[in-house]
Amino acid sequence: MRFGVIVFPGTWSDRDCYHVFEDVLRQPVSYVWHKETDLSRFDCVVLPGGFSYGDYLRPGAIARFSPVMASVERFAAEGKLVIGICNGFQILCEASLLPGVLLTNAHLEYRCQWVNLRVENDFTPFSSMCKRGQVLRIPISHHDGNYFADENTLNELETTGRVVFRYCTSGGEITPDANPNGALHNIAGIVNKRGNVLGMMPHPERACEDILGGEDGRLIFGSAMRVLTK
């Protein structure tokens, strides 16, 4: 599977994603500068974490106007896979490729820690290697990960199975204490209607090697790879 890692000014998980695709998953991967517009050589593009444009104004609010974003929209419309991680999730929301918005964490602080995620839907291209109800351990690192959407949107997400990951306890319970940022319904990751665009706050690229503390992130990237080899 050919991965493209999009680099905005201020992006910083680009190198980690690149490392995982190249060194861990052994897939062809290239960086894509945000001023480029041709994504035709990729099967999957990743919008990585970081502080694009310094998060000035609002996370993702400026990056959505980068030239590459019109191409990402077309890429998604063609049914190809798009993964937004952390700041990438924020950008996808700002670009309306995903519904809702990521507000400042309810406790107003940055959080970098391992969290538990319950897989809510294992029929998406990003979770097919997981089992529904399975608990994944993946780190978060953000200041604005507090997912918010209006009542109707939330209902639609819930009833159509578009909530893919939810913050939970190690035993898989959805509790307020397991929620690291105040996200509504403990939402950590969602997909679009068509199911080919994923946005998630946790960083799967930090959880692909045992030496870093876990390998659950591989299930997410591995699922995406499986789609293409099918």
């Binding site: 910083w12 998980s13 190198r15 980690d16 490392h19 995982v20 974490g49 602080e109 940055y110 959080r111 970098c112 820690q113 780190p139 690192s141 960083h203 690229e205 930090r206 090697e209 030496i211 870093l212 503390g213």
Partner: peptide, 16 residues
């Protein structure tokens, strides 16, 4: 304190 700092970015931190 340290949970307010990203101590993992870079994918190199093996003792955090």
């Amino acid at each position: 304190v340290y949970r307010q700092y990203d101590h993992q970015v870079g994918d190199n931190t093996v003792i955090a």
